[in-house]
């Protein structure tokens, strides 16, 4: 076996609650082990070198979406990023931009997503009449169910938000995550909202017409969701919904 190499980490450090602290990059070194991920390396750093280092991991299996951060300029999930992917052994870690910073690499994506969900009403709004849980369920086209699941795979990691220059420039823009969820409910035959209802939510500059199609969302999404197709679909749909059409 070849000799284990040293991975050099450069990590953003800042404690916003400490009035004397200033943002800085701090360097650390870790000896690489086979199959090492950024998750494993960060935990080693915290346990052996600096117990104050803040970061968020939950499932550590690429499922929960907690650990998104910017790794060498790419926002992605740290838990499933192998250090072996970086042949030079230099890894720069920054927190996701566009979210409230809790400290170091930890950002408050949860608060952001909850507010977004409330703002856009991102939940199923079914016809309440056909919901007798003791009786046979309503059939659904198997194809539709499969398509819905495709769109439902979003893990709210926040990568699309930080990869979007539009969102970075305009605070109020709903971002890809919001539009993808709207697309998911728009597709759902159980949802009673009409195109008009959705127009009121995203048919504006902060919604689908504010999107400049930079596609950072699609290129960075760790779940490979079809942002381009879905947002384009919504845009066409919303453009046709607009009651006072010119062109």
């Amino acid at each position: 076996m070849s000799q284990a190499r040293t991975i050099r980490f450069s990590i953003f450090r800042f404690d916003p609650q400490d009035p004397h602290d200033k943002p800085k990059m701090v360097n650390y070194e870790v000896t690489e082990a086979p199959g090492m991920t950024v998750f494993i390396a960060l935990n080693m750093l915290r346990e052996q070198q600096d117990p104050s280092l803040q970061f968020d991991f939950v499932c550590r299996a690429g499922i929960c979406g907690s650990c998104a951060m910017v790794i060498n300029g790419k926002p992605t999930l740290a838990c499933r990023t192998l250090t072996a992917n970086y042949p030079k052994g230099d890894i720069v870690l920054m927190p996701l931009p566009g979210f409230e910073l809790i400290g170091d690499l930890s950002v408050n994506t949860g608060k952001f997503m909850r507010e977004l969900s409330e703002r856009l009403q991102l939940w199923l709004q079914p016809n309440s009449l056909d919901s007798d849980i003791h009786r046979m369920e309503q059939p659904m086209d198997p194809e539709e169910a499969a398509k819905l699941y495709e769109l439902e795979r979003c893990v709210e990691c926040g990568v699309c938000v930080s990869a979007c220059a539009t969102k970075q420039m305009r605070e109020t823009f709903v971002g890809a995550v919001g539009m993808m969820k709207i697309a998911r409910f728009e597709l759902d035959s159980r949802d009673t909202r009409t195109a008009d209802d959705f127009y009121h939510v995203i048919g504006n500059q902060d919604g689908v017409f504010g999107c400049m199609t930079l596609l950072g969302c699609q290129d960075a999404c760790p779940k490979d969701l079809p942002h381009m197709t879905q947002i384009a679909y919504l845009r066409r749909k919303m453009a046709m919904t607009n009651p006072n059409r010119i062109l």
């Binding site: 048919g203 504006n204 607009n242 059409r245 010119i246």
Partner: peptide, 11 residues
């Protein structure tokens, strides 16, 4: 930013 103009402007 007005919803009517948003769609129109984009188109």
């Amino acid at each position: 930013s007005h919803p009517i103009w948003a769609a129109r402007a984009d188109r």
